[in-house]
Simulated assay, not measured.
Amino acid sequence: MAGSSRDMLLDDSGPVQKGRPLISLIIPVFNEENSIRVFLERTADALVSLRNAFDIEYLFVNDGSRDATERTIMTCREEWPEISLVNLSRNFGKEAALSAGLNHASGDVAIPIDVDLQDPPEVIVQMIAHWQQGAKVVNARRARRDADTWAKRTSAGLFYRLFNTLADHPIPSGVGDFRLLDREVVDAICAMGERSRFNKAIFSWVGFETAEIEYDRPARAEGGSQWSYWKLWKLALDGIFASSTTPLRIWTYVGLSMAVASLLYSAFLFFRTLLFGVDTPGYASTAILILTFGGMNMFALGIIGEYVGRIYTEVRQRPLYIVRSYIQLDTGEGEQDGS
């Protein structure tokens, strides 16, 4: 696995110069062959003002693409020698791909960014300015989400409110993976070995001095979103259950309340029968009680099952991802990595 030292990767004869700060752009891609060149051209133009003081690494993480994404990146590498490429052995999902990028990034700062240009590369200049002023993390908050559908905007808003209500460490609303992370922050994140990862929560959990900027999120430059509502739902569950035990605690309180209520109702029935005799039993009330308590028990078991499943994932200790090949920044030589 790539280390954090720049001297491992940089050479005076290569596309970057030893001693200058390095910006690593982490770009997870999955079936994005039509977006690669558009992204590189736009980003190169947006970051031209930083070229005098910084070197830039385009670290693509190919998350098991089935189209010509890998071939397109290698073709673009002839024009942009700053490109590095991590090829995963299959599709592990964006959270794993982003973790792979963080583990292989060698820059003084790392900036996860989407290749679809919904994360405007022009914002990076403002991020670097805040970093130079001492910020270790620079969050990019979406001022508006006009490019998203009403359903996606509404569900995203509900998720952030629910997550921040339940989580021990809230995440800033409207902030995605697009942000600047200092080398010190990246090293802290890479030291965390958990496998059920929700990176937005991890970025918030590690702390450090944080600044924030706002930007307008445009429409995608090419193609469509890879995120279905089912995938977003699963990501939301991973975020909540990987970041908080509050759902279990809530159910403890619900169970305690139901136990007290049952005890009081039992006492009421006992004394009423003792004083007034036995009533004719009612089918409706019995059915309602059975269905209500049965449904709540199943719901409680479902919550417990979510946590048990994640415990099982952690206990197996399988790697978060597997690297098929790694094309480094300076030499272009591939090396095998089983991370």
Results as ranks from 00 to 15, higher is better:
46 A>V: 02
109 V>A: 04
34 N>W: 06
333 E>C: 07
237 L>T: 09
156 A>T: 14
92 F>L: 04
59 L>I: 11
278 V>K: 13
322 I>M: 10
183 R>N: 08
308 V>H: 09
24 S>N: 07
163 F>S: 00
8 M>T: 11
139 N>K: 07
35 S>Q: 08
321 Y>M: 00
93 G>W: 01
36 I>L: 06
53 A>D: 14
157 G>Q: 07
256 L>M: 12
23 I>T: 03
323 V>W: 03
100 A>D: 03
298 M>C: 14
104 H>P: 01
317 Q>L: 09
219 A>V: 14
254 V>M: 10
265 Y>T: 11
267 A>H: 10
101 G>Q: 00
302 G>V: 08
286 T>Y: 11
289 L>M: 11
243 S>C: 06
74 M>D: 07
305 G>F: 06
171 I>G: 02
139 N>F: 08
336 Q>M: 11
31 N>T: 05
211 A>P: 01
213 I>M: 02
143 A>I: 15
178 F>S: 00
327 I>L: 14
71 R>D: 11
112 P>K: 04
22 L>A: 02
48 V>N: 08
235 L>S: 14
299 F>A: 14
5 S>Q: 13
119 D>A: 10
44 A>P: 00
82 E>G: 06
33 E>S: 11
275 L>G: 07
190 C>H: 06
307 Y>W: 12
242 A>R: 00
247 P>N: 06
120 P>T: 08
192 M>G: 12
15 P>M: 03
243 S>H: 01
253 Y>E: 13
268 F>N: 09
288 I>L: 11
188 A>R: 14
1 M>D: 09
122 E>N: 08
91 N>W: 08
164 N>P: 01
141 R>G: 00
207 G>V: 03
24 S>C: 06
309 G>T: 12
230 W>S: 11
108 D>H: 13
126 Q>P: 00
51 R>W: 05
222 E>Y: 09
198 F>W: 06
121 P>A: 11
229 Y>K: 08
3 G>Y: 07
132 Q>G: 15
318 R>S: 14
20 R>I: 00
195 R>M: 09
66 R>K: 14
337 D>W: 09
114 D>I: 09
10 L>S: 01
128 I>L: 06
275 L>W: 13
90 R>S: 13
250 I>N: 09
61 V>C: 03
61 V>R: 02
236 A>K: 04
16 V>I: 07
28 P>W: 02
187 D>M: 13
208 F>Q: 12
64 G>P: 00
54 F>D: 04
73 I>N: 03
120 P>V: 07
